[in-house]
Amino acid sequence: MKKFDYYQPESLKEAYGLMEKLNGEARFIAGGTDVIVRIKQGALHPDALISLRRISALKGLGNEDGLSMGSMTLFRDIERDPAIARDYPALGEAASVLANPQVRNVATIGGNLCNAAPSADAAPPLMVLEATLTIEGPGGQREVSIEDFFRGPGETCLEHTEVVTRITIPKKRKGTGMAFLKIGRVAQDIAIANAAALIVVENGVCRKCRLSAGAVAPVPLRLKRIEGIVEGRKIEPDLLDRVAEMVQEDVSPITDVRSTAQYRKTVSGILVKRAIKEALDRAG
């Protein structure tokens, strides 16, 4: 394993200063459950790590006008937050099936997103919740929709010197239902495929539909074409079957040790279909 220096700045300013001083040979680290593993496997070779754990500006979970989470919010806290369980159950469910308790006790929502694994469990719920990420760097602050955040496996729109500071989710509308589903080889697994759905129903008709599928493309996907088909319609079995088929057309998964591409396609469609059904049940 490569040896690295480890810095623990107390503020973002200090963190930027360190990053500048280290000439980009450093890497930010949140909970470390992914970065440390990759260093141990020899897949990453940073000279230094800059830990974000002591920066209080990155913490805090608020639920006044929508949901606002500091990027260093632990999955543990998301999993246990009663307001999230009530208003954003898809997110709470994703948090509760991500890895295992020991990992959730240190892994952060920001870290999960910045790793940009196509299978990241936090991504599909945040996609359907239309989350906005606040990004900050030495040059200032900007806001990015989560849809525009991912660029490819392990790649995001972040500059090397930038940090995600906050994730915000708009206030939940009345009549909204949402769900997150995941399938793995065993109970504890990286997703073969995962999916989230958010539905707003008025008088039996779907007014709003947001769909996302993970682990089936280089980045977590929004399924906009299919959302357009669902919106304005009554959600009935025929429509759901059509959705499942369309998902198969819209995803482009790979084959790896966990699954073949073909199975991912099939099951991704099924998960999206079932997520819509579950969201619909909860929208009532």
């Binding site: 480890y6 623990q8 680290i29 470390g32 459950t33 440390i36 593993v37 141990k40 496997q41 790590l49 830990s51 754990r53 543990r76 890895a99 295992n100 308790p101 020991q102 990992v103 006790n105 240190v106």
Partner: peptide
């Protein structure tokens, strides 16, 4: 396993279970 998959290295830090194989020692300060 050294990679946070098996939990054999579980200890409590401030009462929370963590995989000590992935927990940077500096963070325990």
């Amino acid at each position: 396993c050294g990679q946070g998959e098996c939990g054999a290295c579980t200890v409590l830090v401030d009462g929370l279970s963590v995989d000590s194989c992935l927990y940077p020692a500096f963070e325990v300060e």
